[in-house]
Design a protein around this nucleic acid. Structure first.
Lengths: 204, 204
DNA sequence: ATTCCCATCTACTGACCAGTAGTTTTTTTC
DNA sequence: GAAAAAAACTACTGGTCAGTAGATGGGAAT
C-alpha cells in the first residue's frame, strides 16, 4: 500500500515499481472507459496478472483511484511551488514560467489529470477532501502571484485575483482536447497557453 | 422516444412532459453519481415510478444519456446562432454578447453540461459523432467571429483564431467550480467571463 | 533435501443491475 | 358501463464484478 515511508531496499523498490505500474495501467484504462465501467479484471489482464495481485498492493479499487488523483494534482502543485521558490526578473516572467511548467506537467500527465477531474467524486470523503485541499492551495498560490503582480504595476490594475481560477481552467481544459497525435505540438500548445494566461492577467 | 416529429395534441404534450422529466431527473442523478454508477432504478425511484416506465419513453439507458448530452450542447449552439444572426455595433459587442448569452445557458444548464463533458464517451458511436459535430460547429463559428474581428482591426492583430478554443474552455470550465450556493452570483460570474473572453481576444 | 515463507493464482460468493415477459390498473371508446 | 386499448407495474433472468478464502509454487534459510 502506498503512503508508508520505509527504508530503501531492493525489495521496496520492487514493490514501488509494481505499485507504480498498477497506477499507470489503471489510469490509462480509467481514462478510456471511465472508472465505474472499468473492472479490476481489465486492469489485471492488461498487466498480465490476476485480480488478487492488485489487492496485495492496494486496499481496494478506490485506493487506486486515489493514487491516480494524487498524481493528477500533486505534481502540478509541486512544480508550481518549486518555480515560485526560484529567482525571477519580475512577476510577469514568474507567471509565464509557472504556467509553462504546469502546462507541461498537465500535458505529460494528461490521462491522470482527466481521470482526476472526472472521477474525483468517487473518492471516499477523506481522500476527496485531501485532494480538494491540494487544488485549493494551487489556485490560492496563483491568486497570490496575480495580486502581487498587480500591486507591482506589472499587470493591468483592474485585474481581479479571481483570474487565477480562469487560468487554472485554461490549464485544466487542455487535456480534454489536446492529443499528442494532433496537428499542434505540445510546445505550440504551451506557447499559446502562456500567451493566453498573460492576456488574462493583463500583462502585455 | 424523442426525435419524432408529431402533430401537437394534448397527448403528445403529456408524453413530451414525461420524457422531459425523465431527462431532468436522470441528468441530476448522473451528475451526482456518474452515469455508470447511477442505476435506472435510482432514476425511477426519484420520479416515483418503476424502471419499465422509463423503457416506454427511451430505448435504453444510453438513449437517456444522449438526450442529456444533446441539451448540454445544442442549447448553447442555438443561442450562439441566434445571437450571431442579430444586429450588433461591431465585433467587440458581438463577441461580448455571444459569450454572455452562452455563459448564461451554461450556468442555467450546469448539470447537463457537466454530464455531457464527462460521460460523452459512453454514447454509441453514432450519437457520439453527432454530438461532436455540434461541438465543432460551435468552436468553428466562434473562431470565424474572432477572425473577422481581427480583420476589422477590433481585436489585437496577433490574435490567433485558435483562442476560440480557449474561450470555449473558459465557458466549459464554469460548471466544474461554480455553485449557485457560492458567494459569487451568476451575474458576477458572467461579467467576469465576458471580461476574460475579451482579454483573450485582445479586444480592449 | 526439507522446511518455511511470500507472492501470486484458482475458484468462488453475494450483491447488483440492464433489460424483459407477462400481468394489472387506468383510461378511452362506443 | 362493458370492452378494448394504453399505461404502468410485478417479478424475473442472465450476466457482471468487487472482494475473498484457500491452494500452489518457487526461492531462501538451515
Amino acid at each position: 500500500m502506498p503512503g508508508k515511508a520505509s527504508k530503501p531496499s531492493i525489495k521496496n523498490e520492487f514493490t514501488a515499481f509494481k505499485t507504480n505500474r498498477i497506477v499507470e495501467v489503471a489510469s490509462h484504462l480509467f481514462y478510456e472507459r471511465g472508472y465505474s465501467s472499468c473492472t479490476l479484471d481489465h486492469v489485471a489482464e492488461r498487466l498480465g496478472v490476476t485480480k488478487p495481485f492488485l489487492y496485495s498492493y492496494f486496499k481496494n479499487k478506490e485506493a487506486i483511484l486515489a493514487a491516480i488523483c494524487e498524481v493528477g494534482i500533486s505534481e502540478s502543485l509541486s512544480v508550481l511551488e518549486r518555480t515560485l521558490a526560484g529567482e525571477h526578473a519580475d512577476h510577469r516572467a514568474l507567471l509565464a514560467e509557472v504556467v509553462r511548467q504546469v502546462g507541461r506537467i498537465v500535458i505529460d500527465r494528461q490521462e491522470y489529470v482527466v481521470v482526476y477531474q472526472r472521477e474525483m467524486k468517487h473518492l471516499s470523503a477523506k481522500d476527496h477532501e485531501r485532494i480538494l485541499r491540494l487544488r485549493h492551495s494551487f489556485d490560492h498560490q496563483i491568486a497570490e502571484l496575480i495580486r502581487e503582480g498587480v500591486e507591482a504595476g506589472e499587470f493591468r490594475e483592474d485585474t481581479d485575483s479571481f483570474v487565477a481560477v480562469w487560468i487554472g481552467g485554461l490549464i485544466s481544459w487542455i487535456p480534454t482536447w489536446y492529443s499528442p497525435q494532433g496537428q499542434k505540438s505540445a510546445e505550440d500548445v504551451i506557447d499559446q497557453l502562456v500567451d493566453a494566461a498573460m492576456r488574462l492577467a493583463g500583462a502585455e
